[in-house]
């Protein structure tokens, strides 16, 4: 693992940003820097999965990655990293919580997914429209912190089915208190206990 990846994995934000600036000044390929950051994020995800890192670490890593991304992306031009796949994400109707959803979006971006982020309090028909506009999206992520919005998740899954799109996408859910019983209730395919799990699930489905 290169220096950039190691610094990201150790959450050394200032050192990392200085190193990125230095390497860019030295003419290092921005795409190589970007890929090394992704490597670092994979290491962060592994540390989270093994219990060495916690949610705050994921958020810190996501923040660092975003800053590097902002430095590097304008320099990439046509030469961009090939996307792993496309995910439509949103917090379901009636629920305005965005922290968990935003963290999943950041980690999916870092894992090189293209994410269509619909925001919070998203109506079922907005998910359907997004899927129609993005026929290459294979995964839908429904975020929901409130138990009272389980029905909104169910309605969203039903709306996707009614639009004839259910067999074209896999649907993952996540948020606060949920387990397999909520997956069954909503008619989704899988749940993730945390933001990193969402990345693992999305990769499985590609």
């Amino acid at each position: 693992m290169g220096a950039i990846a190691q610094m990201l994995a150790r959450l050394e934000d200032e050192n990392l940003l200085a190193e990125v600036r230095k390497q860019l000044d030295e003419g290092v390929d921005p795409l190589a820097i970007f890929k090394e950051c992704q490597e670092g994020m994979v290491e962060v995800g592994d540390k989270f999965s093994s219990g060495e890192y916690f949610v705050s670490d994921l958020m810190m890593a996501g923040s660092i990655f975003k800053q590097v991304n902002e430095m590097v992306t304008p320099l990439l031009g046509e030469e961009k990293a090939e996307k792993v796949g496309k995910v439509v994400m949103g917090t379901v109707k009636g629920d305005i919580h965005d922290i968990g959803k935003d963290l999943v979006v950041a980690l999916l971006n870092a894992a090189n997914f293209e994410v269509v982020d619909l925001g919070v309090d998203v109506k079922p028909e907005a998910f359907v429209e997004a899927l129609k506009a993005n026929p290459d999206a294979k995964v839908v992520g429904l975020s929901c912190l409130l138990t009272t919005c389980y029905d909104a998740m169910k309605e969203t899954v039903e709306a996707i089915a009614e639009a004839g799109l259910r067999d074209k996408v896999k649907i993952m859910i996540g948020g606060g208190s949920l387990d397999q019983s909520v997956v069954d209730y909503a008619g989704a395919d899988k749940f993730g206990m945390d933001a990193q799990a969402a990345v693992t699930i999305a990769k499985e489905w590609m």
Binding site: T147, T148, Y150, S177, L178, D179, S181, V182, Y185
Partner: peptide, 13 residues
């Protein structure tokens, strides 16, 4: 007792 169980479960569960 988990909130999701109280919302979606059965009394037996």
């Amino acid at each position: 007792v988990p909130p999701q169980l109280l919302a979606t479960g059965t009394p037996e569960q």
